[in-house]
């Protein structure tokens, strides 16, 4: 079984992020790293391929400046190869044009299953994976907390607010996985050394049969008009227990209508 994992390479969240002043898009000038939320998808894919007894995991990523640092991390975990779409024409892409690019790249790998995180840690739109599935014309299941493949179908436990739904669709399909679907492995030293020699195919927009005008800022149907800093969180209220602490807690819980 062949699985594609969509992985995003993002600015290191340990450093404060920056937005460009004109377009309010994230500045991605420095080294980019593998989005931690994608490590779960990579691990899930590796386990599914193992369980199927054959096949391989291919990474698909779209990133500026031919960035491969994050891809190398996922290759070191055990993925076999990667497809990277890197093109100046992609700057300013919205979620839909990103989905078109990823879908076109995914088709080249002819996978049975596509796995993505529910959302990226930098953009947080959470809409790209299902748009990829729509562009491909494949079924999608989001928020998987458990994934199993058998007899041409994928069975998923989909996380809900109250529990989970059991959902089953036929392959090929796209599944988004939550953090915690599986525990990601660390790259081993052998994996790190092997990653060096694994193929990364770098493509331009035109290699995918797309026109530069369809993607990037030129093709975007969405524009960030303005950005407001998040309001500072208000300080909590400290209740001093003078023997009536429990009453104050009950009153507070009633006030926020949880009891």
């Amino acid at each position: 079984m062949n699985v594609v994992v969509c992985v995003k390479q993002i600015p290191d969240p340990a450093n404060p992020g920056k937005l460009t002043s004109e377009t309010h898009t994230i500045v991605r000038d420095g080294k980019l790293i593998l989005d931690d939320s994608d490590a779960y998808g990579v691990e899930m894919a590796l386990q599914l391929v193992d369980a199927a007894g054959g096949g391989e995991v291919t990474l698909v990523s779209m990133a500026p400046h031919s960035e491969t640092s994050g891809l190398r991390t996922a290759l070191a975990m055990g993925a076999a190869k990667a497809i990277l779409v890197s093109d100046d024409a992609l700057a300013g892409s919205d979620a839909l044009s990103t989905a078109k690019v990823l879908a076109a790249a995914i088709k080249r790998a002819e996978p049975d299953l596509v796995i993505a995180a529910t959302e990226s840690t930098d953009g947080y739109t959470g809409t790209t994976p299902v748009q990829v599935a729509e562009v491909l014309g494949w079924p999608s299941i989001s928020f998987a907390k458990k994934v199993a493949v058998a007899d041409g179908t994928v069975k998923v436990d989909r996380q809900t607010e109250t529990g989970y739904d059991s959902v089953e669709v036929s392959l090929p399909a796209l599944v988004t996985v939550t953090a915690g679907v599986v525990e990601p492995r660390y790259p081993s030293f052998k994996g790190i050394m092997a990653a060096k020699g694994k193929p990364v195919e770098e493509l331009k927009v035109t290699d995918l049969g797309l026109e530069p005008g369809q993607v990037g800022a030129a093709g975007a149907r969405q524009e960030v008009v303005s950005v407001e800093p998040a309001e500072a969180r208000k300080a909590g209220e400290i209740v001093v227990d003078e023997g009536d602490g429990y009453e104050k807690i009950v009153a507070f819980l009633e006030q926020i209508k949880v009891i």
């Binding site: 640092s69 190398r72 991390t73 070191a76 660390y186 790259p187 081993s188 030293f189 790190i192 050394m193 990653a195 060096k196």
Partner: peptide
């Protein structure tokens, strides 16, 4: 090298 940096990253995460 990239591999040495990756080793730092992976060992640090484990630690």
């Amino acid at each position: 090298t990239e591999e040495q940096q990756a080793l730092r990253g992976a060992v640090g995460k484990l630690g």
